[in-house]
Design a protein around this nucleic acid. Sequence first.
DNA 1: TTGATGTTTGACCATCTGGTCAGTTGCAGG
DNA 2: CCTGCAACTGACCAGATGGTCAAACATCAA
Lengths: 205, 205
Amino acid sequence: MPDTKSRTRIQRQNREAILEAALEVFSAQGFRGATLDQIAAAAGLSKPNVLYYFASKEAIHHALLSGLLDNWLAPLRALDPAGEPLAEILGYVRRKVEISRDFPRESRLFANEILQGAPRMMAAIEGELKALVDEKAAVIRNWSAQGRIAAVDPYHLIFSIWALTQHYADFDVQVRAVLGPGHDPFAEAGSFIETLFTKLLAPAA
Amino acid sequence: MPDTKSRTRIQRQNREAILEAALEVFSAQGFRGATLDQIAAAAGLSKPNVLYYFASKEAIHHALLSGLLDNWLAPLRALDPAGEPLAEILGYVRRKVEISRDFPRESRLFANEILQGAPRMMAAIEGELKALVDEKAAVIRNWSAQGRIAAVDPYHLIFSIWALTQHYADFDVQVRAVLGPGHDPFAEAGSFIETLFTKLLAPAA
DNA sequence: TTGATGTTTGACCATCTGGTCAGTTGCAGG
DNA sequence: CCTGCAACTGACCAGATGGTCAAACATCAA
């Protein structure tokens, strides 16, 4: 199992193909629902060959999840304490909507993991994720205290942004089934959610 | 497989025990992740005995899902076109929060199903669910047109209620991990979400 | 060309899992 | 007490699945 830093061209290509295929399969079927044969077929490789690049099914899943966390936290990390409060929060919202639109499989992979009790991500959630949220919640609380935005619980503000944006990726089939054809769920959601938070955060008169 | 309408006391008890156990296991592991052995163990029965009451794993899952839909739609169904608009919508929100608090496993079962593309629920979603949402969306749109609440897209209003309330059931472990101890997520969420929609729906001055 | 290393595969294995079945046990009505 | 049906079980099966391995094949520098 060659996983030192020295990767040949073929190694890089095949590892990439496997991760892409695994994302497709894991996000649609969950960890236990996915099979190595499905992943191998989707990657255009034989099963033993897949296991030549990754030690186990677990290892593939783990590689996906660790690669995911940074991208997942980036939008919140970019929230600037020195910026204009409402613009910063709406910017965060917009970035999250875009991520849901452009990376729905990643969102579903994450949702699957949390739904099952986050067995393989608890550490990251209690560590990195919580630390970042704590930090940004303090920033938002400060903005509220200064009267620059309405007084809201910053944690639940963040949760509500997660809930609203991820919903459109995770429950995509339901949203589309209910809306019927001729809709662009993410575009509509974007402006709806923006309105929602604009009204919520308007400072008291 | 005795599933006529005539059920003995033991039949009722054991079927109930199996469904309860299956809800626990399916909601935590997803359909493919769950095994009959787990369900049988959780129900305190042997595997063959479980299959004496239900024809297959599929049949158990199906029984759970069909029993679920009605309870799931009830809160929206209760939204009264003749009532006071804001009170009706906030009442719907409150009912959904309570359901997330009291039936988180059912919420996760549902979430698992939708996440995987709703393979066993598409019909119900495109049928019953869509019909009910269409009906209530028309009611809400009417309220908006009359200026009794702000002008909002009624579909995305309903989606946002689903997203916010179900998030606290489906992502419970994440919410608790981030909040840390000493919190009552559902109580806090309840008042946060109520505030959110109150501000959103306030009619234009 | 050749050897060495990296890549790929068919065949195989142990285990798990949904499901079957013949037969045993329990129980209620006569 | 007995009979007949409901309830239950151990043993078993076939297919799926994660993973192994020896051997074959490709690639490339010397």
